[in-house]
Design a protein around this nucleic acid. Structure first.
Length: 191
DNA sequence: TGCCTGATCGGCT
DNA sequence: GCCGATCAGGCAC
């Protein structure tokens, strides 16, 4: 079952935690890649200078200001993409970065990315974009109606199995505990 | 296993 | 011009 609109329009921290354990699905000519979300980060509208939307709307971050339930894909470091799920209400400028997933069908992924260790296929925000063939083409897609990319219900993670800690790779607001991951899952980007 | 660095370019000041 | 929500490879230990 695809997640409904009402899943995404809740507050960002709730969405970030609830996305853990859900399946990110991506249609390819080889079949649908399915991967369990194991690590997320919340980016907030207020008091969060690390958030792209913090300094107001620009052409790049405009999708973040739409109503929750669409994708926000951006280009970073001249080489890579990161995939976000826009959350909460229209005008808020909030999103959840998907930092790591656990691949459920490696065979299809290997058309797009190969590594010596399966563990390294999708344990980082840009690694999972490479593995699932997510690029700027998938920016601002409706996750409820699109058949290209969507998220389905799967397991719910128990509260005790969710680790809350600080975000990775940012230089501002490094003290905020807005990163969430599934305890003991080997596909998490960094323990 | 872990730290350090170069690659690379779009977005924004 | 400068910097970034990153990654892979090299080298030291």
């Amino acid at each position: 079952m695809k997640l409904e609109k009402s899943f995404y329009t809740r507050d960002t921290i709730t969405v970030a935690k609830d996305l853990l354990g859900k399946n990110l699905c991506r249609k390819t000519p080889f079949g649908i890649i399915e991967a369990k979300i194991v690590e997320t980060e919340a980016y907030l509208s207020e008091n969060d200078p690390a958030c792209h939307a913090n300094r107001g709307m620009t052409p790049r971050n405009e999708p973040m200001f739409e109503e929750g339930g669409i994708s926000y894909v951006y280009f970073i470091y001249g080489n890579y993409f990161c995939f976000n799920v826009v959350s909460d209400k229209k005008g808020f400028g909030t999103a959840v970065l998907i930092r790591a997933v656990e691949p459920l069908n490696h065979e299809i992924i290997k058309n797009y990315r190969n590594t010596k260790k399966i563990k390294d296929l999708t344990n980082g925000p840009s690694k999972l974009c490479m593995a699932m063939n997510i690029t700027k083409e998938q920016n601002k897609l409706d996750l409820i109606t699109s058949s290209e990319i969507f998220i389905t219900d799967n397991e719910s993670i128990k509260k005790n199995d969710i680790i809350e800690t600080t975000r990775i790779g940012i230089t501002q607001a490094q003290d905020l505990k807005l990163r969430f991951y599934i305890k003991d899952n080997i596909f998490v980007s960094k323990i």
